[in-house]
Amino acid sequence: MADTVFGIATAITVLGLALAGYRFLKGPWAIDRTVALDVMTIITTSLIVAFALFSGRRIYVDVGMVYGLVGFVGVVALARYLEGGL
């Protein structure tokens, strides 16, 4: 029961990631792509933690935490670059 519901939840999350990826590819401006990248970073972090649950290996939770940290720094660095402050 719980596994089925969680599988459906993960499938819906992947669909949301695909929609954000469509905006990332379509643009039309760099700032739109960066907003899409921000959303994709958060969704991917959650998906990595979900993968830890599927594979049963706790190390992937740590991978997700580090990915969230690095993704945040990357998005802020891109935003600062677009602003002209870097």
Partner: peptide, 24 residues
């Protein structure tokens, strides 16, 4: 608690989908 957690994850996934639709 596992079933409650799975349904919480499902609601969260719907909000992820909502953010994707919003971006489009």
């Amino acid at each position: 608690t596992a079933i409650i957690g799975a349904f919480l994850s499902l609601i969260g996934a719907l909000f992820f989908l909502l953010s994707g639709i919003g971006l489009i």
